[in-house]
Nucleic acid binder design. Structure first.
Lengths: 191, 191
DNA sequence: CATATACTAGATAGAGCGCTCTAGTAAAGA
DNA sequence: TCTTTACTAGAGCGCTCTATCTAGTATATG
């Protein structure tokens, strides 16, 4: 069964969100996942770096699907973006401002220290941008504008996570949501 | 002379930008600063945490003054904000996408693990927001709108740093600059 | 039944961590 | 001159880090 491996991946993703890459120890991971230490190097022979890379790519994909699900469930794209920011604010509140994007923390840590992991975070952001661009294109925006709004959404969300987690307030994320929605509305109006 | 202490603070700030808080070792700091290890605990008796806190508050103040200087040198507030984003993009390019905001990296790392440091990052962000609000109020925005634009600026900039450092592109920061300027223009127009 | 493969289990190595400790030097004030 | 204070200097402690290593168990296949 792939049960142990999945448990290690899920636990690591959760710990990355709270403690970052360098702040998360392998022994803490196996302890919290209830997995033997040997299994870690069985499933991830290249050690922490391989585990980190798989967690980054996996989490990136999960969040992308979450975003697409939220937008698909909304009556229109503007409401979808609104729901996304409101959901993020709610999640932060519920988890005592701990559980936000696991990519950003690791991305900043590894950007200048670990090229394979930096590449993984870059790939995740690139695919988020593409996914967003596709969605906004489908909503009627021309190609360059769609990409700009997608980038605006992601940078606003990530930056808001930083401020909200630090200040323990949802104000930054609420403001970021309004700004992003406004940018989207403006772009749609002139399309 | 306060020379050694300053050198330790400056070196630490630089290393925090690149390696983060947990990723920066005290021995690396004194080695790079050319300072004896004993001096570190002479100037910072409470160790790494005290050093970290002073670096956060000091860097926060420096960046705030930098922002105010840039805006003061510009012919108007819109140009000032534009210059700020362009300067940030230029700095990233020149430093191989290493030197960005030292607060964000540390903020995400310590938000759920170290309360005194989390508080220090929160204080920095709060004072940035206040400084921005003051500037935008002076430019003619009513109070709630001024604060919203200030928060938008900071979240956009921080989020753009994350994406730019990860992808090694200035595109996110350019887009964030345009979006922020647009938000500011809209707010000014309806003021 | 035999054997290969997948996985569990954890002791241990070697390096590095934050921090403490003792000792020594430089310069200023009594 | 003597003493105090500020600072330099770095060895070493206890601990944790990632990673390796050996050994054992379960399961499936010949």
């Amino acid at each position: 069964m792939g049960n142990t491996k999945e448990r290690i991946l899920d636990t690591t993703a959760e710990m990355f969100r709270r403690y970052g890459y360098t702040g998360t120890g392998l022994k803490q991971i196996v302890a919290q996942a209830g997995a033997p230490f040997g299994s870690l190097y069985h499933f991830f022979p290249r050690g922490k770096e391989q585990l980190g890379e798989e967690v980054i790519r996996r989490s990136g994909l999960m969040y992308q699907q979450l975003f697409e699900t939220i937008v698909a469930a909304a009556p229109d794209i503007v409401t979808g973006v609104q729901d996304l920011f409101e959901g993020a604010a709610e999640l932060l509140r519920q988890t005592d401002y701990a559980d936000a994007c696991p990519i950003a923390t690791v991305a900043l840590e590894v950007a200048s220290t670990n090229e394979p992991l930096r590449q993984a975070t870059a790939d995740v952001f690139a695919s988020w941008i593409e996914a967003g661009t596709t969605l906004f294109t489908r909503a009627g925006l021309p190609d360059p504008a769609a990409r700009e709004v997608a980038i605006t959404l992601i940078t606003s969300l990530e930056g808001a996570f930083v401020l909200s987690r630090a200040t323990r307030t949802t104000e930054p994320i609420e403001v970021a949501g309004r700004t992003t929605v406004e940018a989207l509305r403006t772009a749609l109006a002139s399309a």
